[in-house]
Design a protein around this nucleic acid. Sequence first.
DNA 1: CCTAAGCCCTGATTTCGATCAACCTTCAGC
DNA 2: GCTGAAGGTTGATCGAAATCAGGGCTTAGG
Lengths: 248, 248
Amino acid sequence: MTLRQDIHSSGIPVLCLSCEARHHGVCGALEPDHLAQLAKTSSRHNIEPGVELIGDAEAVDCYSNLLSGVVKLTKSLSDGRQQIVGLQFAPDFLGRPFKMKSAINAEAATAVSLCSFPRAAIERMMKESPEFVHRLLKQALNELDEAREWMVTLGRKTAPEKVASFLLMIARNIGSSVDPAARSACFELPMTRADISDFLGITNETVSRQLTSLRMDGVIRIENNRRVTVDSMSRLERRCGGRGATAL
Amino acid sequence: MTLRQDIHSSGIPVLCLSCEARHHGVCGALEPDHLAQLAKTSSRHNIEPGVELIGDAEAVDCYSNLLSGVVKLTKSLSDGRQQIVGLQFAPDFLGRPFKMKSAINAEAATAVSLCSFPRAAIERMMKESPEFVHRLLKQALNELDEAREWMVTLGRKTAPEKVASFLLMIARNIGSSVDPAARSACFELPMTRADISDFLGITNETVSRQLTSLRMDGVIRIENNRRVTVDSMSRLERRCGGRGATAL
DNA sequence: CCTAAGCCCTGATTTCGATCAACCTTCAGC
DNA sequence: GCTGAAGGTTGATCGAAATCAGGGCTTAGG
């Protein structure tokens, strides 16, 4: 492999050189030699929308860096009711240290590309690199914050507020905006109406109605059912229900 | 102080000897010398129900081990709507590494006792003891799991199921049960009906009605508004909505 | 081409839980 | 003792969102 020689030359594996995970993801915590170690066992996958990311070779059980696309984490009740409990965007780290029984399903919401590592390699990294664990902790705390933010949305917001909050969250995560102050945004919805409803704890009919309502009111524009344009972010924000200002 | 001499004799600070946090909490990750270091700067507090745990001397900004009692974490919208986003039981670790702006309020739900440490001491521990960070990661992942479990409850369960699920969760956390298989349980509700409603995303009237309904159906007994007895856990479980079985 | 399956939108109706309102109990303070 | 506040329960009414139902658009496949 060309890998070994690259390790010798620059210290950083060639595969990792252009990888965003090295800047903002967990790999940023690693020294070149650790990175090289990991890279030797890594493999890249491209995954189609709708494919489950579980056990086996496919993706996670291995741990993986999410390089592009959106992954949804879901939990279901035995009667079929489903709730999306997390969305992961690049360059999040996927996989669950310390246990298998998570009872959470991961599924590619869009086309997804992953950089996967065998479980053993990651567990070794956790032993050898405190900085790596540190980074994992940071991500876990971030996800915890997000989860708690959603709990407010799920428990205390109305359907119109839920949909607006969802759009705002997506815009902030994957929205492209020319404007540096992000006064406007444009993005492709990474999920179907049914997914959105599972995310917000409402029905797809309600999602549809609320999107229409936002469209009618000129807050958003929608093309091809998926492409959303928000002209005025602040206008959208005002529809999200009292901002979480606990102080002031 | 007697502290120093105890460090010399046994290696473990006297205060920590009988502390549960040393067994199941974050302190369990520490070597005697680290523990001694921390103990020197620790202080214990007793806090009344309803008191905010924020900034200042009072409690957290310091980090603290929760020694007894229940702490509720809440987020509010500016119009007053409130959601409880987390409950902490002993021996959880309170406080937020890496940032101040959490926008989360912590409040003693019951009488609470804390063992607090100055921010600097904990940050130093995080640098010096990888095992400590490891422990923090574990707790964070646990809280994340709990948060996600609640998201299902908030988003997809009916009011009766929500209340049953809440009782089950409390019973599992603080229920005393003679029976080892936990066929029955008895506990003091750590919060008011209003708190419970903020936790479940419903109104206190609805909480009240559902409790009455469970009482009428013989699933629970209630004394003094607070003391709850569950004779058959499995009966209660059946009221929680399809158990999160994703597989099988 | 036609058909069937997804996905999405919209209207009519129903229902669950919110809201409004009254009353009870307990407890602290005067 | 009385009074008022806080927490809790219960009933009546209302409304937001679920449910039920139908129809349109796009895409894949025969």
